[in-house]
């Protein structure tokens, strides 16, 4: 034992570790502490979308112009297929604006769900290297998508003005719709993020589920014109994605929206946000595992 280093010598000291000022690691943080540590990283949360946005189109000739060009081209494709070839625009006098608002609003939620689903699994090395509240990852993912949505909003208003929509005070309501949508998207991203860590296959199912939502939310058609059954029309009113896109359309077209849509959007946003947060946090400790 003269060289002081054999197995028998390797023992931890006695006494309660807590009395020596030690804290046990890897236990669940109380909610208040968790939220405080999220708040402490707020500058990081806000910096991620900005740096993401900056790094996205660094290698292209047109650079950040793509943030506007991309949504513009999307509307062009949809308009070509649905108005010119399929002629689904009958009964609508401004199909182009109708389409632009619907498609962009939907896209924000769709991208939040898909990118949110990847926010934990694609950041595995980050999670295994740095300790921070993991909820930051889906949050900053949704904010990144929100930032990418802003150029689309500009395009939306450009299309509206170009097709003869008059500016109106209702446009300001779009801001409230966007806040509700961001909260809703947080909830969605929390849920898809954890589900993907539980079943990796979920990531492959999600795009199809979102396609179904896309067709069931009246993005390409007007529910009032295309759905005959009044009862079925009522069902649409409780679909949060329909509610959000429809609210955005009413705002852009300068019309007051039915109260039920506001209620549906607000209700789902709150429920999904709170339930999604606790669902996500319950898996917090499992995210470091391979």
């Amino acid at each position: 034992m003269a060289d002081g280093g054999v197995i028998a010598a390797i023992t931890a000291g006695d006494g309660d570790p807590r009395e020596q000022g030690l804290v046990r690691l890897g236990t669940n943080q109380p909610l208040v502490d968790y939220l405080r540590s999220v708040w402490d990283r707020r500058e990081y949360v806000l910096s991620v979308p900005v740096s993401e946005f900056r790094s996205q189109n660094l290698d292209t000739v047109l650079g950040s112009a793509w943030h506007v060009l991309n949504p513009l081209m999307q509307v062009g494709v949809y308009f070509f297929v649905f108005a010119i070839i399929l002629k689904t625009d009958r009964g609508l006098d401004n199909f182009l604006t109708f389409l632009a608002v619907g498609v962009f609003t939907y896209h924000f939620t769709q991208r939040s769900a898909i990118k949110g689903a990847r926010s934990i699994v694609s950041n595995e090395s980050l999670i295994r290297s740095i300790g921070f509240p993991r909820v930051i990852l889906p949050v900053s993912t949704v904010l990144s998508e929100g930032l990418a949505y802003l150029p689309a909003v500009v395009v939306m208003f450009m299309v509206a003005l170009a097709t003869g929509v008059r500016p109106s005070p209702f446009w300001a309501l779009l801001l409230i719709v966007m806040v509700i949508q961001v909260v809703f998207n947080f909830g969605i991203a929390f849920i898809t993020a954890r589900l993907t860590t539980i079943f990796r296959d979920f990531e492959n199912v999600l795009p199809f589920a979102l396609r179904v939502v896309f067709y069931m939310s009246g993005i390409l058609y007007e529910v009032e014109n295309k759905i005959d059954s009044p009862r079925l029309r009522q069902v649409f009113n409780f679909n949060p994605v329909y509610a959000v896109t429809s609210l955005a359309r009413h705002a852009v077209f300068g019309q007051p929206a039915p109260t039920i849509l506001w209620f549906t959007a607000f209700f789902w946003a709150m429920v999904l946000f709170v339930a999604g947060f606790f669902f996500f946090k319950a898996g917090e400790k499992s995210y470091g595992r391979i």
Partner: peptide, 12 residues
């Protein structure tokens, strides 16, 4: 504390 341990305890 980044990789969950399956048994025992880590104090710091």
């Amino acid at each position: 504390g980044l990789l969950p341990i399956s048994d025992g305890a880590v104090y710091a």
